[in-house]
Computed example of a mutant assay.
Amino acid sequence: MKIDHTGYLVRDMEKALAQFEALGYTRDTDIIEDSATRNVALCFLHNGAVRIELVSPLHNGRPSVVDATLQRQGDGPYHICYQLEQPMEDALADLRRQGWLVVTPPEEAVAFGGRRVSFLFRLGVGLIELVEADDETV
């Protein structure tokens, strides 16, 4: 697996974009709204070979999957995403055998054009995201 990006949890997307752009990051995407499943706003940026994803709850009065984490830990690094080089089911089976807990089963992600993602957790490491490889990397 190779690292695809590091996710940063932020309360205010516009403020965070301005802060990361001041650090030399360039936007790879517009702000993507995933209101159907996660109720979050996402934006991908890069600085050289480093790619990040800003993740913020949509402020629309509905709960977001990141509300509790944002309240508990505040703004900051949230997860590391790994792009798979094997089928999702095989990777999940391998990681479960290594003691990882599947937090969210594989589901299509708006931010990845429908490719599936899954989140896993392990004490001592934290939260990771797996994303299926796109056709260009398989």
Rank of each mutant, 00 (worst) to 15 (best):
V40Q: 09
D28G: 12
R27P: 03
H46T: 01
I32Q: 11
F20Q: 07
G48H: 03
V55Q: 03
P63R: 09
V55L: 13
N39F: 10
E53S: 12
N60Y: 10
T37P: 00
R27G: 04
N47T: 03
P57C: 10
D34Q: 05
I32V: 15
E33Y: 07
S56Q: 00
E21A: 08
L54N: 12
N47Y: 09
G48Q: 05
T37Y: 13
L42V: 05
V55D: 04
L45Q: 01
E53K: 12
S35V: 10
E33N: 03
A36E: 15
I52V: 15
T26Q: 11
E53R: 12
T29Q: 13
G61V: 00
T37K: 13
A41M: 14
G24E: 08
P57S: 07
A22H: 06
G24H: 07
T29H: 13
I32H: 11
R38C: 03
V40P: 09
E53Y: 12
R27D: 00
D34H: 03
P63Q: 06
V55P: 07
D28V: 05
A36C: 04
V40D: 12
V50Y: 03
I31V: 15
G24N: 10
L23M: 15
H46Y: 04
P57N: 06
A41H: 12
Y25P: 02
P57R: 04
D28W: 04
Q19D: 15
N39W: 11
T26L: 06
F20C: 08
P63S: 06
T26W: 01
G24F: 08
A49D: 14
F44D: 07
D28N: 14
I31H: 06
N60R: 13
I31W: 05
D30E: 15
R38Q: 15
G61I: 02
E53I: 06
L23A: 11
A49E: 13
L23S: 06
A22R: 04
P57Q: 05
G48E: 10
S56T: 04
T37I: 03
R62W: 03
T26E: 13
D28I: 09
C43N: 07
L45S: 02
L23N: 03
L45H: 02
T26A: 11
I52W: 10
I31T: 13
T29F: 11
A22L: 09
Y25T: 09
G61H: 01
F44R: 10
F20T: 09
A36G: 04
A41T: 09
D34Y: 05
V55Y: 04
E33I: 10
G24M: 06
G61R: 00
R51A: 01
V55H: 04
C43P: 02
I32S: 12
V65N: 13
D34V: 00
R51E: 02
D28C: 11
P57I: 13
A22P: 04
T29L: 14
R51N: 03
V50H: 07
H59A: 15
E33A: 08
L45K: 02
F44A: 03
L54I: 10
L58N: 00
H46E: 00
L58Y: 01
F44P: 04
R38K: 13
V50S: 08
A41C: 13
S56P: 03
R62M: 12
